[in-house]
C-alpha cells in the first residue's frame, strides 16, 4: 500500500494532518499500538520539521505486511551538518516555531529513538530527505 501527502512550509495550523491520517491507517491495520505510537511520533516530528524549516514537501508511506517505510522529502534550505543537527538541543528554529511548542532541538534525536532505521540526506540550498523505517514486529 502506498500513501502520499503534501506539506506546506510555515502552515502550522495544518501540521500533523498527514501523521494523523497515517495513524488512522495503521490502527485499521491492527498494528500494535505501542509500535504505532513510535511510528507517528517520529513522523510527526519530521512533518513539523518541514513546516518549521522548509518551503514545501511531501510524505510518502509504503506499507507492507512487516514494515512501514516513510520518506519525507522537502525543498528548502537543507541541513549543512547533519551530525550537528542530530545533537540534542541544536536548533535554528525561529521564535514563531518556538511559540508553537517546537524548536528545542529535540526532534531529530527523538526520531532516531523511535524509528528502527533513520536515514537523512540533505543538500544545502536544495532540500532534505528523511527516511523512517519501522518494523511492526521486533
Amino acid at each position: 500500500m502506498n500513501f502520499n501527502y503534501k506539506i506546506k512550509g510555515g502552515d502550522f495550523s495544518a501540521a500533523g494532518r498527514a501523521s494523523s491520517e497515517i495513524k488512522k491507517i495503521l490502527k485499521k491495520l491492527n498494528v500494535n499500538p505501542k509500535v504505532i505510537k513510535r511510528i507517528v511520533v517520529a513522523l510527526y516530528e519530521a512533518e513539523v520539521n518541514v513546516v518549521a524549516h522548509a518551503d514545501k514537501g511531501s510524505i510518502n508511506a509504503e506499507i507492507d505486511s512487516e514494515k512501514i517505510r516513510i520518506t519525507v522529502v522537502d525543498e528548502g534550505p537543507g541541513i549543512a551538518d547533519i551530525d550537528l543537527a542530530m545533537t540534542e538541543g541544536f536548533s535554528t528554529a525561529s521564535s514563531k516555531v518556538r511559540e508553537m511548542g517546537f524548536g528545542a532541538g529535540m526532534g531529530l534525536p527523538n526520531m532516531k529513538k523511535n524509528a528502527d532505521i533513520l536515514n537523512i540526506k540533505s543538500k544545502v540550498g536544495q532540500g532534505t530527505m528523511v527516511e523512517l523505517i519501522t518494523f511492526f514486529k521486533s
Binding site: 501540521a15 511548542g101 517546537f102 524548536g103
Partner: peptide, 27 residues
C-alpha cells in the same frame, strides 16, 4: 514544549499546558 511531550513513553498521562494551538492537540 511539545517536543518534550513527544519523548514520553508512559501511558495514561494527563498533559497540563498553557499552550493552546493545534499542535497541542496533534501532539
Amino acid at each position: 514544549l511539545m517536543s518534550d511531550v513527544l519523548t514520553l513513553d508512559e501511558e495514561n498521562v494527563v498533559l497540563i499546558t498553557g499552550l493552546t494551538n493545534m499542535q497541542t492537540l496533534r501532539t
